[in-house]
Nucleic acid binder design. Structure first.
Lengths: 164, 164
DNA sequence: TTTGATACGTTATAGTATAACAATCAATCG
DNA sequence: CGATTGATTGTTATACTATAACGTATCAAA
């Protein structure tokens, strides 16, 4: 798996990508889910950066390599990847990011840098519990917890930072 | 102020609305912010339900009473109301809901019923602190915390519920 | 009276997402 | 084998969400 938190601007990203793809293949094999070429390629594109990417951003890249591709193609691939837990949707950005722990069911917390876009996923079970306790007090049955924290990552919050 | 949590399907909503409007006027007066007729009307429309409403939903209502109204009009009003903290944007719905505690700076937590749309806002400072601690561990500087919990409200989670 | 700031009107367009139906293909069964 | 079924992808059109850019009106300060 990949390291938690933010990544160094220069890290071995080939390895992130390779590990994510390998884990996705394993997981789909185990579940009998079909990681087709389109779906696999979209997953690769999502994983090409540690930054949420919009559907149309992914679409453009697909079109660059395959000619005519229509929006439903990429949205269907994204739906599949979401259903398998291989990617997450960042609601506050209408964008998608790879999940570093796809085999582990969770609603993570996302820390999103407003300067460079880098996003880190954390999974604090205590936070989920705390939300669930509030929900219980309201008589509310929880399906999904969305936690998105906006701010500045370590690289962008120091003065003289690359993206002020 | 209005009561916290979910509201009874039949409650004195006139009162919710009147209180929200009164507080908004007070708050704008204190700040020298202009609660113009359009802005005030949009706030009323947002407060017409305890359920987040889309910009175009609000736009339709405005058009019904004022003839031609273009999207920027409603978006500008929403921007103003957001800036004053009089409403909140629900990111996972692209929709807007009235803030029951506008004079109190906060990032609340929203509990959103996926059946009936009813939304309750809570403010658990401990939750915010917990998020901030995670952020600090990452070296992340927090600007905004978005917490949206999807599930079923008390009225919709009982069997034989109105909106299963 | 001019100026500047603020709000609002208006037109056009950008960006995000899905409905509906056709085509393909592999697996299975009679 | 040929037919059927289910899953996936292609294709076209359209719906939904949001903003850019520029013009107009108002009002208070200089």
């Amino acid at each position: 798996m990949t390291t938690p938190g933010f990544h160094d601007p220069v890290h071995d990203h080939e390895r992130c990508l390779a590990e994510a793809l390998q884990e996705a293949e394993q997981l789909c094999r185990d579940r009998g889910a079909q990681l087709t070429p389109v779906r696999r390629r979209v997953l690769e594109l999502v994983w090409s950066e540690h930054r949420p990417q919009g559907a149309y951003e992914l679409l453009e890249q697909l079109q660059a390599e395959r000619g005519r591709v229509a929006p439903p193609t990429v949205y269907r691939a994204l739906d599949f990847l979401l259903a398998q837990g291989l990617i997450h949707r960042i609601e506050s950005l209408n964008a998608f990011v790879g999940c570093p722990r796809p085999s582990h069911v969770h609603n993570g917390q996302f820390f999103i840098c407003e300067a460079c876009g880098a996003t880190a996923e954390l999974s604090d079970p205590g936070l989920a519990e705390r939300i669930d306790r509030s929900a219980a007090a309201l008589g509310f049955a929880v399906n999904q917890r969305i936690v998105e924290v906006r701010g500045h990552c370590p690289d962008c919050s120091i003065q003289g930072s690359p993206n002020p």
